[in-house]
Design a protein around this nucleic acid. Structure first.
Lengths: 143, 143
DNA sequence: AGAATTAATCACATCATCATGATGAACACA
DNA sequence: TGTGTTCATCATGATGATGTGATTAATTCT
């Protein structure tokens, strides 16, 4: 899988918040229930996102989590960043050094194109893009 | 990382064999030493590749591992297959189902292009492609 | 046959990821 | 003030990926 389970949870939670209008905070219990994701695990993930500034958390009655950012200007990369290393090894697929710039292997240029297209996708796609035609968020993950 | 450590070891080992001419078998000790990779761990990996038919192993003196295939017709995908699931989730990035074909989200088509370009790269690039201008295989992996 | 060499295998150890249950800390509201 | 609600955090466990050391099995060569 290209994203860790944690990053997928993070994305789906942010998406869930974006699709819920975002007027009042949503509780962890509701988000976890809606996504069918482990509650306490999600709680930690949301906490990390709050510390990263993407979410605002409020405790006590009527508390919960809210987006602090406009989904139209929130990239997938930003949501993923606290969990997965997005660098995606822009150099060689195998982590070679001699293969970076000076003496590229025959596949080097093609790989660079491919890997940078993945990066570009994550940087340029917004949460709003995913939300549009808001297909329901489904549990099924490839085994 | 897009590939597991194990898959990277597998690729580098096959590459090492391809670059060594392949006339006589190479011992695990030599490959592991040349790549600076854990010996016994590599041994298991090579064993799996032998069972997959990519390598031939011979025991006893003058034994070791040899490629059974022409590097020019051996794709990265074939080398990786026994270790990493190459499927790369051709559907939605988030594993949604409703987002597959009928009601794609706004990002769906772009992601499908990106993910299929990764798949195409792995399927179409050969070991020989990597070996050409045979940049030395270096240990450094992005932390 | 016997000794040396080499892969194959076994038995663990270590670590990160993913996950659960219980408890603590902040907050709203009567 | 007190009570319930909610996030925050702690302690622990399960699992798989990665890695290590010792032993076994097959093969070659003398």
């Amino acid at each position: 899988m290209i994203l860790s389970q944690t990053a997928v949870y993070a994305l789906r939670a942010v998406l869930y918040l974006a699709e819920s209008g975002g007027r009042d905070p949503l509780r962890v219990d509701d988000i976890a229930g809606g996504l069918d994701v482990p509650r306490n695990y999600l709680s930690k993930i949301l906490h990390v996102q709050a510390k990263a500034g993407l979410l605002e958390s409020t405790r006590g009655p009527r508390g919960g989590f809210q987006l602090t950012r406009d989904p139209a200007h929130l990239s997938l990369a930003e949501v993923i960043a606290p969990f997965d290393d997005i660098a995606l090894n822009s150099g060689c697929l195998l982590g070679r050094e001699r293969c970076s710039d000076d003496t590229p292997c025959a596949a080097h240029a093609r790989w660079r194109d491919v890997s940078s297209s993945v990066r570009a996708f994550l940087l340029e796609t917004t949460i709003e893009d995913l939300a549009r035609t808001g297909a329901e968020i489904v549990v099924e993950i490839e085994t």
